[in-house]
Design a protein around this nucleic acid. Structure first.
Lengths: 186, 186
DNA sequence: TATTGTTATACTCTATAACTATA
DNA sequence: TATAGTTATAGAGTATAACAATA
């Protein structure tokens, strides 16, 4: 009796498709041995070289305590550097290394592939429409263009925790001289 | 120099807006003292009364071990019942209680409010367009209409864990006779 | 005293294995 | 032997407090 076929609510479709897209992006990023938060950090540092961990924490909405681990991991891979800040000896100035630049380019390529895959079922006109509509909602909700709320959420498939045995490029703490002073806690 | 204003990639907007919508839904659900997975379970049981926990687990993509806790919580609140299955004494037949029916209606109301809020910046025509475009992507990705991938993700604001002290309606295990046999582990 | 980076701690969700009762 | 529900356990993310060095 209803001429238009019933469709799930838009809010539900947004949650479902958005969650799926996030998961797929994490999958596509996994071959680089990076998770979405890593990619977000690299990008933020590239745009704003020398920013502090505090600034990064506020910008990406990642807690400082979690950022320490993520920055450690990126530094262990040689993708970023913690440089001493000349003005304030408390803060680190975060910078991309050349290797980090290369990684960022790989991430950008994966981002384009991801975009193509997600938009595959749409025509060019439809992509234009969808982009405009999503942007309208994002702006109404006060979302900042380059940041999502809750970066670490929507877990990436970092492989099964149980599979970590002879792993080749696994992350291990305490590999080399990271950070300035040991600052050994009590 | 570019006539069209540049816009973030659609895949990114989807992730951002979808994550935000999920978080808002969890917020709107919080006054009922329910999280999104609880709502999904109630709805699934309403549609398919008497289904087993295994079936529910497969349908909602929640691990059986996690389902035990969620079903416990709903049963403690008197929203659902575990009835003995006459055919197979291993399985529980899950049913809504009258109180569960009432809760489901409250959830539906909240769902409508949520839909209105998310779609607020759009005209009726735009809502129609957006719904059709999202459905197109969802179908292309093989997403099942009523289920999202990763139900428990995108954390709800269940209140700060630290605030659990004199809480009124907090969940406590072992309150009443749940389940069939004690099945005391070794 | 306040701030930056850090460690410690607790809770939640995810994921797997193992176990009991039943088929 | 296989299956339903459950428990135990490990890992990762979220969140807060507290700490040392520095401002």
């Amino acid at each position: 009796m209803q001429s238009r076929p019933s469709r799930p609510p838009i809010a539900f479709l947004l949650t479902q498709v958005g969650s799926h897209a996030a998961g797929k992006f994490a999958e596509r990023l996994a071959p680089l041995d990076l998770a979405p938060p890593h990619a977000g950090i690299l990008r933020a540092i590239a745009v704003n070289a020398g920013m502090s961990q505090q600034a990064l924490s506020g910008y990406l909405h990642i807690l400082p305590s979690r950022l320490v681990t993520l920055v450690d991991e990126l530094q262990e891979r040689g993708l970023i550097e913690r440089r001493d800040s000349p003005e304030d000896r408390r803060v680190y100035a975060l910078h991309l290394t050349p290797k980090g630049q290369t990684a960022l380019e790989a991430i950008a390529r994966i981002g384009r592939e991801h975009e193509s895959a997600v938009c595959a079922p749409l025509t060019d006109d439809e992509r234009e429409q969808l982009g405009a509509l999503l942007l309208k909602i994002a702006e109404a909700e006060g979302l900042v263009p380059g940041v999502h709320p809750g970066f670490g959420r929507m877990g990436p498939p970092r492989g099964n925790p149980r599979d970590h045995q002879g792993g080749a490029s696994e992350l291990s703490r305490d590999s080399g001289k990271l950070r300035r002073a040991p600052r050994r806690g009590k």
